[in-house]
Design a protein around this nucleic acid. Sequence first.
DNA 1: GAGCCGTGGAC
DNA 2: TGTCCAAGGCT
Length: 394
Amino acid sequence: MSPRPGRAIPAPKGAGDAESGEDALAASLLLAWYDRHARTLPWRTGPKARARGERPDPYRVWLSEIMLQQTGVKAVAPYFHDFTARWPDFAALAAAPEAEIMAAWAGLGYYSRARNLVACARHVAGEHAGRLPESAAALAELPGIGPYTAAAIAAIAFGEPVPAVDGNVERVVTRLFAIDTPMPAGKADVREALRPLMPQSRPGEFTEALMDLGATICTPKRPACALCPLDAICAARARGEQGAFPVKAKKRARAKKFAAAFVALRPAGRGPAGSGPAARNGQILLSRRPPKGLLGGMAEIPNSDWVTEAVTGMPKPPLAAPWEKRGGEVTHIFTHIELRMTVWAAELPADAKAPPGFWWHDLSDLKGAGLPSLMLKVVEAALPGSSRGARLGG
DNA sequence: GAGCCGTGGAC
DNA sequence: TGTCCAAGGCT
C-alpha cells in the first residue's frame, strides 16, 4: 500500500527536510525539459519572461483553469480569446449579465462552470476588491474552484508550492512511482508522492511542466518514453508496464433516451418578402431550461420530456401549429446519456405570439441565441445551412 | 464514494 | 462503431 513502491528508500518527511536526492533530480530534469519544450499558451507566461520575474495575470489563469476542466486546449482557445476580449478582468465579468455569459459559453459544455464563473467573478469583485485570494486553501472556498483548480492557480499565479493533480499529473506520477491504487481514491497517493518534489523556486512552472509532459510525452496510449526526461527514473518504464497506469474502474454503460424537438418558425416581421426559403430570414421559437441539471440555464429548442422508450406519435408541442416531421432524427451523446430526438417543424404566421416563457429569435443571429450543441444539431436538421456561422464544430 | 454534468477528437 | 479521454466540481 506504499504510495511509492518504485522508490527503494522512502524519503524522510521531517520538518525542514531538504528534498531527497531522487526527488530533486526528478524536479531538476523536468524543469530543464520545460525550459526547452514548454507549450506556448495564451494564458501563460513563458520560461524566459518568468526568469525576468514576470507572472501570468491571475484573472487569465483562473479563467483558463475553469475552461480547461475536462476540456481540451484546442476547444478552449477560441472561447478564451472571446472572453478575455469582451471581459478583460473580474470587474468587467462581474458586471456582465449572466445570460450573456451563458450564451458566450454555449458549445463548451459543462454549463454549471459558466454559472459558477459568474458567481465567482461577482464574489471576487464584490468581496475581494477584484483580486483573487492567493492561497490554495482560500481559493478552494470560491464557487467552481475545487482541490485541483485551487492548487493550480495558487502555484501558477501566486507561486505556492502545492501539488495540483489533474488527469495529466495523475498519469505521469502513477507511472513514475508505479502507484497502483485505483482512481479516484489513488489521487491522494499521487498528491502525497508529488508533494516532496515541488520545488520552492518554480512551483508554477513545475506544475505546467507536469501537465505538458502528460499532454505531449506521457500520453494515455503509446507514450513517447524515448523522449521523456524522466525515462531513466520511471518505475513503470523500468517494468515495461507504462500502459498499466493509472489504474481505473470501468465506466457504466450509457442510458438511451428519446424525445421530440419542435422547431417553430415565423417569417420576418417586416421588410421585403425573402426570395427562396423564407425560414432562414425569419425567427425561431426558443425557451430556457431549468437553472440546474442537464444543460441547466441554457437556451433551447422547445422539446418534450426525455423518456426511455422510443416515441411513436407526436408529444405535446409548445403551441398549436401544423407540425410536420422534418429532418429525421438527431442523435447526441452526452457523458451518461445517448439521446435520440425526432425533429418536428411548423411555419407560423408573422404575427404568431410566443407563449409565456418562450421568445422569438432571429435566425440570422443564431450564434447569439447561445444554443448548446445538441440544439444546434436540431436546427441544422430542420433547416440545413441555417446554422452557418454558429459554432458547430466544423 | 458514486452519480451527474457536454463536447469533440483520436484511435 | 465503440471506447476513451481532456487542466474536475458539485451534491
